[in-house]
């Protein structure tokens, strides 16, 4: 199991990058009313067949050529099910893939959210050719972060310019910490 949900977020989004997505959307919703944390990963990458989508949450299914195991989605699914949540994956070849997962917010086995801003920042910084849309909703208060808007504002300076990336990092930390009232759990 990953130590924090932020690690799962970083890991699962890499699948979209590997699928050559140009836009990766990540919705993070924390709701005390429905006692859940939900994550939705939506990409416009190469997608996969229905059979493959069915099979990918099995650890012995992978597109890797180096070895026969892939643990990203199985770990995510296991964590969701261990906390009374759900896991679903939909995909279409040529269109993209959506992974939706939820966790019981107050379940004792739910890993902490962890350093979510750090994961989102890592994704933006390490994948300069990919656009990201993050929507973080905490009990109805939300924060939207769109790299397309940022790219347009700073063009032609790349997002990995040190000053620009420092701004992006501050922005993610400030806004998300504020939504959580200064505390992550």
């Amino acid at each position: 199991m990953m130590r924090e949900l932020a690690d799962n977020i970083l890991d699962i989004a890499q699948n979209s990058i590997s699928a050559k997505a140009s836009l990766v959307e990540i919705d993070i919703t924390v709701s005390h009313a429905s006692n859940s944390v939900s994550l939705v990963f939506r990409d416009d990458g190469c997608g996969m067949s229905a059979e493959m989508a069915q099979a990918v949450s099995d650890p012995f299914t992978t597109t890797r050529k180096t070895r026969k195991v892939g643990l990203g989605l199985p770990l995510l699914k296991m964590t969701a099910q261990a906390t009374g949540g759900d896991f679903a994956i939909e995909s279409e070849i040529g269109k993209g893939t959506t992974v939706s997962v939820s966790f019981g917010l107050d379940h004792i086995d739910r890993p902490p959210m962890g350093d979510v801003p750090g994961s989102l920042f890592t994704l933006v910084l390490m994948n300069p050719g990919t656009d990201f849309l993050f929507v973080y909703d905490y009990d109805g208060a939300d924060f939207t972060f769109d790299t397309r808007v940022i790219r347009e504002t700073v063009a032609p300076i790349p997002l990995d310019n040190p000053e620009i990336s420092a701004w992006i990092k501050d922005c993610l930390y400030q806004e998300i910490t504020e939504l959580h009232g200064g505390l992550f759990s």
């Binding site: 940022i150 620009i164 701004w167 922005c171």
Partner: peptide
């Protein structure tokens, strides 16, 4: 989101 004006100011500084 943190102010985009601030970001535009960083851009102006960087571009020089």
């Amino acid at each position: 989101m943190k102010s985009l004006a601030e970001l535009a100011a960083i851009r102006a500084r960087m571009i020089e």
